[in-house]
């Protein structure tokens, strides 16, 4: 099967890969680029474990074809920390015990980062609705919501 050459920027670095026509962006990231921090929980856009930011928009990478990413800028969980300095959201997730198994965590962090970039002072309800596309089966969301609220407060300097 012939493949298409795709050129992107991933976490600030140029990245190229070959993609079969039906390859999802998720599978390209995991299998072609080797970034396995982005997870597959459902493959149908219902769980949010595969959340990435493409050209500033939060997307489920399992719902986007890899060839559609040509020329785009992609941000994954591997790009959320700066070097060995964790993003405030990452620190707060650890501090609040907002993860148990940790499998949904990358998707939550990417989605929450995208929220805080749009709204730096979300209410609890806004956090809950923004994150409604991300499933967590371990925590009951309580500690996740608290971690996001507190990270937002810290980032505002509150």
């Amino acid at each position: 099967m012939s493949k298409t050459h795709v050129t992107t920027t991933i976490n600030g670095e140029p990245a190229e890969f070959l993609a079969e026509a039906g390859l999802t962006l998720l599978d390209a990231l995991r299998d072609e680029v080797g970034l396995t921090g982005t997870k597959e929980g459902c493959g149908s856009g219902d769980c949010g474990a595969c959340s990435v930011i493409v050209d500033g928009r939060l997307v489920c990478s399992c719902l986007m074809l890899a060839v559609e990413a040509e020329g785009s800028t992609i941000e994954t969980i591997e790009g959320v920390a700066t070097g060995d300095t964790l993003h405030p959201l990452q620190r707060k997730f650890i501090e609040y015990a907002a993860l148990q198994c940790g499998f949904c965590t990358p998707g939550f962090l990417v989605a929450a980062k995208s929220l805080l970039e749009k709204n730096n002072n979300p209410t609890e309800t806004e956090v809950r609705f923004w994150l409604a596309g991300n499933l967590c089966r371990c925590t009951g969301y309580d500690k996740i919501v608290r971690a996001v609220m507190d990270a937002a407060a810290e980032m505002r300097g509150a």
């Binding site: 995991r30 969980i77 920390a81 015990a97």
Partner: peptide, 21 residues
Amino acid sequence: TRPDRPDGVDKVTGRAIYGAD
């Protein structure tokens, strides 16, 4: 007490290796 979990950083940065990874 409530210390940071030892595998916390791996799990918030995508480094942790799960079954399909």
